[in-house]
Design a protein around this nucleic acid. Structure first.
Lengths: 340, 340
DNA sequence: GTGAAAGCGCTAACAC
DNA sequence: GTGTTAGCGCTTTCAC
C-alpha cells in the first residue's frame, strides 16, 4: 500500500528527477517545457500509483489563483435556489472553476461574514444570489478586488441579473383575466393578488405588473385587490379565507404570489366544494411540479434559473463594467399545464 | 480608500510591530502570547480599516489545516439532498468548519474526481451522501488519510449512516393495511407496492419491509404486489394504469415508493372519479409538503435528515472506528397529516 | 531537456 | 511583551 502523505519532492526522488519536472508534468504544461515523453510517463505512473494529488493550498498560494468560484444563496432547502446551485455548478465546471455554494439564511451579518470567508479562501469571483444586503457584500468584494455579480435581488454597487417580475406578473394577470369566467357580483368579478411582502422588491414589481394589467384590461383597480400578506402559508390561508368571507365567495381570478403562499391558499381551498373552485381561475407566481397536480387547474410562472445564471456568468466573463446595471430576464410562462 | 492587496507584513509595518504580533492578534490567541491590550487594539483597528482578511491558503499551508469540511451529494435540486446540505452547513458551522457542498450527478467518475479535488484543497473530513460508489471514494480518502462517513447509501469501507428503510416501509404498510377499507374482489383487497428500482439498495429494503408486513398481517404475499418499475413519473403512471386495468379498479391500498413516482401516480389518479379514490388508501415513502395538499389523504414517510447528519457528524467526531459499521436511523411517520 | 533557488503569506519555535 | 527565523508545498525565472 502506498504511503499517504507525499509531496512533489517525494515523487521527484522516486522518479529520479527534480521537483520542477514533477510540477511541470503534473500541471500538464510539460510539452511546453519539452520534457521527455518517457520521463513524463514515469512521473505520471508514480503519481497515479501513490494517488498523489497536488496541494491546492500551496499551488494557490504560489500562483495567487485558487481555482474557486463562490455562490451565496439564502437557502439550500428551496426549489429556486437549489436549482440555482445546480446550474451554477455546471457553468462553473465549464470554466474549469471549482464551485462552492454557501447559504446565509437571509441573515445580513452572515452574508457579509460568508463573503469575507470566501475571500479569505481567495475565491476568484462571487455570485451573490438573493442577498438581503447586496451592497454590503459589494463593499467587501470591492475592497479585495473580487469580481462579483448580484442575482435575483439587485444591488446598486455591482451589476445585477434579476427576474423580470413586472413582465411575468403582467402576463400572468392578463392570462387570468382572459381565462376568467364572468361572475354576476361586481366585487368578485375581478382578479385578486395575495401573498408576498410589500417591502420586498420582487413583490413590489409583481404588484406593479398585476396593477398595470388590471388597469389596462378592466379600467379600474381597487386597493383591496392587492394583499401582500406575507409569505407564510398560515397568513395566506387566513387572508384568503377572509377574502372569501368578504366577497361571499371566491373571486373570478386569484393571483397567488409564491408557492409558499400557495400552500396556505390550497389548505383553505380544500374546505370548499368543487363547484366553487371551478368558478375561479388560479395563477401562481412561482413553480412547483406538485402544484401542477392539484385538483384544480393552475397557471404558473417559472423563474428562468438557467437564463439568470448564464447571464450572471456572462457578466463575470466580460470583466468589470463601467457602471453597474440591472439586467432583467423574463420568466417562463407555464400556462399550458394542467388545463381545465 | 484603503488599498486592497495587503499582507500581515503591510499591517505590521503600519502598526509598527512584527508580523508575528499581527498574526497572533488576528488569530485571536494573543492573550496567550500576552500581547499588550493597546498593541492588539491598534492592530485590530488597522486590520478593520483596511478590511484585511488573512490568506487561508497561506495559513492552511503552514498549519496543514484548511478549516474546510466537504459533503458530496448527487443533486442540489432535490428536497432530500438540499435539506441535507442545509443541515450539514449548520452542523459544520457549529464545529467552526467551513462547509463546502458539491453535487456529483450520480456519476461515479465525477464522484471520485470530486473527492480527489476536495482532498487537494485539503478538506479535513468528508461526508459522502447518496454516492453510487461509496467504496471508490473511500479508497481515495483512505490513501490520503481523510476521515469520512457515508450517508443514505452504505459502503463497506467506511461507517455508514442510513435510513431504516425496512422499518419505515413496514410501518407504512401496517398503517395502510389497518386503514384500508375492505373490498369484495380478493385481488384488489391487498396492498400494492409501486415505484423505485429493484437494483437500488433502499428500494430493496423497503420491499422487504413491505413484504414482511403483508405476510404478517395478511398471511400471503403475491409477487405481483411488488412492482419496482423505476422512478420516472411516466413509468409509474403507466404501471399504475396497467394495475388498475388488471384489477378492474384500484387496490384497497397503494404504497408509492418516492415522491417522484408519486407524481406519475397522481397524474393517473386524476383521470379517475372521486369515489374510486375514496375507496383506496394511499401511502408514499418520501415526503413533500405539496403532496399533503392533494385531493385525497396520503400517509407519508419522511426521512430524518437531521438525525442522519447528526449521527454522521458524531461518527466523525468519534474518530476512526475499528470496523466500518452501518447505523440505521428511523424515518419520521407522517400519518396524521391530511386525514380522510 | 532538466535543475537550483527564490518566494507566495503565513505560523510556530525559539530567542531575548 | 515582542522579534527573528525557518519552512509548509508549490511554481517560476534563470541557468546550463
Amino acid at each position: 500500500m502506498p504511503k499517504n502523505k507525499s509531496t512533489i519532492y517525494d515523487l521527484a526522488r522516486m522518479a529520479d528527477v527534480s521537483a520542477t519536472t514533477v510540477s511541470a508534468v503534473l500541471s500538464g504544461n510539460w510539452r511546453a517545457r519539452r520534457i521527455g515523453e518517457e520521463t513524463a510517463q514515469r512521473v505520471l505512473a508514480l503519481a497515479d500509483k501513490h494517488s498523489f494529488s497536488v496541494n491546492r493550498q500551496a499551488s494557490g498560494l504560489r500562483t495567487s489563483r485558487s481555482g474557486l468560484i463562490g455562490m451565496i444563496i439564502p437557502l439550500h432547502d428551496n426549489r429556486f435556489f437549489s436549482g440555482m446551485a445546480q446550474t451554477f455548478e455546471k457553468l462553473a465546471r465549464q470554466r474549469h472553476l471549482y464551485p462552492i455554494v454557501v447559504s446565509t439564511l437571509r441573515d445580513t451579518a452572515l452574508e457579509v461574514e460568508t463573503a469575507r470567508t470566501l475571500i479569505s479562501y481567495r475565491v476568484e469571483s462571487l455570485i451573490v444570489a438573493g442577498a438581503t444586503d447586496p451592497d454590503a457584500i459589494s463593499a467587501v468584494c470591492r475592497s479585495h478586488g473580487v469580481a462579483h455579480v448580484n442575482v435575483d435581488l439587485p444591488g446598486t454597487k455591482a451589476t445585477s441579473v434579476i427576474s423580470d417580475n413586472f413582465w411575468g406578473a403582467q402576463q400572468l394577470t392578463e392570462a387570468l383575466i382572459a381565462k376568467a369566467k364572468p361572475l354576476r357580483a361586481a366585487a368578485r368579478n375581478r382578479p385578486y393578488f395575495v401573498g408576498g411582502l410589500a417591502t420586498d422588491y420582487a413583490t413590489q414589481r409583481r404588484m406593479e405588473g398585476f396593477s398595470q394589467a388590471v388597469r389596462e384590461r378592466l379600467g379600474e383597480l381597487r386597493p383591496d385587490q392587492l394583499d401582500a400578506c406575507g409569505y407564510e402559508p398560515d397568513l395566506a390561508e387566513a387572508h384568503v379565507a377572509a377574502l372569501h368571507e368578504r366577497l361571499k365567495g371566491l373571486p373570478s381570478a386569484l393571483f397567488v404570489n409564491s408557492t409558499i403562499a400557495l400552500e396556505g391558499v390550497v389548505r383553505f381551498l380544500k374546505t370548499l366544494p368543487h363547484e366553487e373552485l371551478a368558478a375561479c381561475t388560479f395563477g401562481c407566481y412561482d413553480w412547483d411540479p406538485f402544484a401542477g397536480m392539484l385538483a384544480f387547474p393552475l397557471m404558473m410562472v417559472r423563474q428562468n434559473v438557467d437564463g439568470l445564471l448564464e447571464e450572471a456568468f456572462a457578466v463575470l466573463d466580460a470583466g468589470p463594467p463601467r457602471e453597474p446595471s440591472v439586467i432583467e430576464i423574463r420568466p417562463i410562462l407555464m400556462f399550458g399545464v394542467n388545463p381545465a
